[in-house]
Design a protein around this nucleic acid. Structure first.
Lengths: 351, 351
DNA sequence: ATCACTTGTGGGAGCGCTCCCACAGTACCT
DNA sequence: AGGTACTGTGGGAGCGCTCCCACAAGTGAT
């Protein structure tokens, strides 16, 4: 414990003022050095830095927050029960990206779950108290009131996956439209002619966009539209089974299926097997998410990969900018605030 | 936005002073009401509460922290990379318990990973700044410097799984000794005579205690000690395989194995199978942790369950007490601060 | 030599609370 | 009647910063 430099004799933590006295400068100067202001001479800066090191000075965050009206922390809000958070690799990937981008910052990340009503009330209180400088909102449902609350409190926020084309919050999304397109183009290129689509929940904007991509890819390839080849699912395995069964009964001659998620693809696969269709010989199958399921499926599933980790990084970028700008970006730069990242088709044996 | 009560005309958030003015009382009185002091008359209290509601007053945390020298937040420190955090149900269970116990508190939980050196440096800085009132430390290795840092900074802390019998920090643990005992007693009761033990990493205190439980259970049942039946593992599947192979070569006539973790039990099972021993007919097998592996093994594995979620709850209890006491508990009450929770044997078909 | 900037610096004011002392009012003893 | 104690209340002081104004000293144009 020796060699850690003397604390002030008063016994508590050293303050700015004590550092200033020690360095023989004024309070303002120390503050400038600590906050990296360029308006300090090199000699003075060195003296202050020495004093800081000798005293083992660490700024008092509360005092800083009070005086500067900022908290240097941001919240990652997960509007889901913890269970799902741990179950889905989506969150883990996202968290990794966020953490990485934050690591060379002074910002502290708070992880807040808002799955239950109780948790949501707590969160509302927390936000009202402005205990964070900004919020990252992941996995928001279309009818979630949280984004509006954030807007009302004028708290900078970035959302992953806009709620609609008219999203007012800054958002980062993967290219669901392009992802859907690439899946279908891939199937066309493999010589498939009757390509069905099992959609995700259509109140999720991303799912709609995948349908759009599916439609346009077929149209551009000169296929005529056939709505009988589209069947809504709900992102669950059971939904995949049901949709697949429906599709098969309606269009027994289909030769490919694009499912809006890997989980639904897994459900579809079970039905295809049961009906004696071989994958990929009789029916090619493509999923979405490139999750662990895709890699471990039999046969391994072709899937569309989203750059989740990078989404996390970009979200932080945008959020930090917004916080620095200190204004809710409701002006003409809104269009610049809707970032879309490319997806990538990962071909495997199922297609 | 109407009906939300008028903010002060100044536009910003209302302050204590504004509430006081509105309620026609002094600043101190409002503070007392907000903090639930009993020294306020009912009439005054009601007036203040009305003013608070009308103005939509929310205390400024920074100001409170500065004045009262507390942060109303505690950190859950995970000295592991995020990957393991998500992979192991241990953390998820723990987090659930912690969150539950914290939910009727004003305390905010921070989740902090300290896996890499970089992250550890950040954490040290964070703790030095006293940005939390207390720390929950889970999954600490024997040589981790973190506990000592915490002690040095005089930050209240509770550790899950003491580092040794002489642990100085407040700790919550499951009864590893009793768990080991119960596993062996169960095997004896089932008529097993030559019971082997694959230990965990012996630099983990809990693993040692399981060995102690194993030894004492055998001794109390009148078995003579046979160290050839004990083989150290390292909590990994590979370690389980290696230990099992060694044990079989040394004592081919063993009729039961108690593994220090389910993962090691899984490794042991592979070797037993390969050597043609049937489970449980020829060799009974018992694991530890009662993880998903145990339930899904073939045959389902008898295992010792630890009440992880409850451990989380108890840790918060102790931590909050320690914070409220505002003193590092180095005195005679230390023994009261080593809490041990009972384990439970979950019998399945492997024994 | 004068004026106008620029650069570096000190320190007052104030952020919104909590803590605590002072004090009025009431109650109950002697 | 005076003393003592307690209850409820107001408000000063101070927590450790940041922000910003004031100002000294230096620089270069006129």
């Amino acid at each position: 414990m020796a060699g850690h430099g003397g604390r002030s004799r008063s016994g508590g933590r050293p303050t700015l003022e004590e550092v200033a006295a020690r360095a023989g400068v004024g309070r303002g100067t120390v503050s400038r050095v600590i906050n990296g202001s360029p308006r300090v001479s090199d000699a003075t800066r060195a003296a202050v830095e020495a004093a800081v090191a000798e005293l083992g000075y660490v700024p008092n965050t509360a005092a800083r927050a009070l005086a500067a009206n900022r908290t240097d922390s941001i919240a990652l809000v997960v509007p889901e029960p913890e269970t799902r958070f741990f179950a889905e690799p989506y969150f883990s990937d996202m968290l990794r990206g966020v953490g990485a981008e934050l690591s060379d910052t002074e910002m502290q990340l708070l992880l807040i779950f808002a799955g239950s009503d109780r948790e949501r009330r707590r969160l509302a209180q927390y936000l009202a108290a402005h205990r964070v400088d900004g919020v990252l909102l992941v996995s928001v449902h279309a009818d979630d009131p949280l984004p509006d609350l954030l807007a009302q409190l004028e708290i900078p926020a970035v959302i992953s996956g806009p709620r609609s084309a008219a999203e007012t919050l800054t958002s980062v999304d993967s290219d669901n439209y392009g992802g859907g397109r690439s899946a279908v183009e891939h199937l066309i290129q493999r010589g498939r002619r009757k390509i069905a689509h099992i959609t995700g929940r259509l109140d999720v904007y991303g799912a709609q966009r995948r349908v759009d991509g599916y439609r346009d890819a077929l149209r551009d390839a000169g296929h005529r539209a056939d709505d009988q080849l589209i069947e809504p699912g709900d992102f669950t395995e059971e939904g995949g089974r049901r949709a697949m069964a429906t599709l098969l009964s309606r269009r027994p001659d289909l030769d490919a299926v694009f499912a809006g998620s890997d989980v639904m693809a897994a459900g579809a696969r079970q039905i295809l097997r049961k009906e004696g269709r071989r994958i990929p010989d009789d029916v090619a199958l493509v999923g979405y998410d490139d999750s662990a399921i895709a890699r471990h499926m039999d046969p391994p599933l072709t899937s569309v990969r989203q750059p989740i980790e990078e989404m996390g990084r970009r979200m932080i970028d945008l959020l930090l900018t917004e916080i620095a700008d200190r204004r809710p970006p409701t002006s003409r730069d809104l269009d610049r605030r809707q970032m879309v990242l490319a997806t990538e088709l990962v071909p495997r044996t199922s297609s």
